[in-house]
Design a protein around this nucleic acid. Structure first.
Lengths: 222, 222
DNA sequence: AAATTATAAAATGTCGACATTTAGTAATTA
DNA sequence: TAATTACTAAATGTCGACATTTTATAATTT
């Protein structure tokens, strides 16, 4: 992943981004230049270049002469992110249904099967489940074939992951996530194969909004 | 706009962005560090920080040890940008219709009036018309009230402006732009006030896609 | 002459230093 | 004691220098 042919700024960008998304740095936390330089073993320039890119991604904010901070979160933003994400996902799926071919269908069925099997496991590994879960949803939208829309989707997922991470930090167990919507996934696949745009739009929006209530509750008591 | 309390990187970012969007720097054109430093009278660090942010905005790309380039354009990307933009705009308007109140309606009527009046003028100034045109479309979506969706919308508009600029560069006259869709705007307003989501979605998507054919033709013969 | 190699020039990306601004602490005053 | 001021320490943002890589040019070889 981190090609040695990449420059320092690119390499450090990923580390920093992951550390912010995973919640290692908390919202509003100051990102001291000196500390980061030592932690990631880099000089000033590449570090600031990475931070500049994160600013453009809304993960970092900066005030002149007062340095960089992890961007703040809020209940309003949580709702806005997830709602927007739901609408975009719905859009992607509708376009998938319009354009998706046999390969899209086959790939979707396969991804669904992999997720289903793993969901029924006794002691499922969270990372593996999340990976399969992500793959399933990607299979759903993969027929849409719009790079720009995908980019928007990815960027929103990144931002929502931040909220999810912060929530997971509070709740050690995440059995909730795994159980909440097992049958919804099956329903989504069926509706996709039936090319029922209206029904699948409704369902996917609800599906994506499901965690919001839980995260909201957890977050508001901090 | 360019606050003196901003740092050098922020100030130069806007100039650079505008120069790329307006087509002063052409697609694939190399952005020599030394040249830019002299042109904008800045040092290495803030310049590279600005370029880093533009990378995150997809206006600039970079290869390690081979510097920065204005990101390329293509017919496929042109179509993708405008199509995505059309879908997003449609989404914004639908949400506007759901949430828009009396103030939204009033503001929309006012913006429509300002655009209409100016469109009937003898010798309209292009900039003034574009300003009023932009205001009208913003009035349409302003009820949607989702910062994140607005941000996506702005970013797409920026990217589409690039194509429009390149096209304008070829076609000195832009009377086309002004005349193409005068009555569509009136229709959009009426449908908005009637809260006819289905009809307005269809119309706005067509409306936004209108320039694509023209730009495509102009661009493909370069 | 075409292709390869060697050499020179130019450009990139990184670093550490420095001036300037901000934040923190102690001293002063009311 | 609380509030204001003066001072010190820390941190930021910018610059120019330097090592490394790439590109362009000339020389060599087949």
């Amino acid at each position: 992943m981190t090609d040695s042919r990449d420059n320092t700024a690119s390499k450090i960008l990923n580390s920093l981004k992951n550390d912010i998304i995973s919640g290692e740095y908390l919202p509003k936390q100051k990102l001291h230049i000196k500390t980061l330089k030592e932690k990631y073993n880099v000089g000033t320039s590449p570090l600031r270049e990475a931070l500049s890119q994160l600013m453009a991604n809304d993960l970092v904010v900066s005030k002149n002469q007062r340095g960089f901070y992890v961007s703040d979160i809020s209940l309003e933003d949580l709702t806005d992110i997830y709602q927007t994400r739901a609408k975009i996902e719905s859009l992607c799926i509708e376009m998938s249904i319009d354009k998706g071919d046999d390969y899209w269908e086959a790939n979707l069925i396969a991804a669904s099967h992999r997720l289903n099997k793993y969901s029924k496991k006794d002691k499922p590994d969270t990372n593996e489940w999340q990976s399969r879960h992500g793959d399933f949803h990607e299979a759903l939208v993969s027929g849409c074939n719009s790079p720009r829309l995908f980019q928007i989707r990815s960027s929103l997922i990144e931002k929502s992951k931040r909220y999810r991470s912060l929530w997971l930090k509070e709740n050690v167990s995440n059995a909730t996530t795994l159980k909440i919507n097992q049958n919804e996934h099956a329903a989504l696949m069926i509706l996709a194969l039936e090319r029922d745009k209206k029904a699948i739009s409704k369902l996917i929006e609800e599906h994506i909004m499901t965690p919001v209530g839980i995260i909201k509750k957890s977050l508001s008591q901090l």
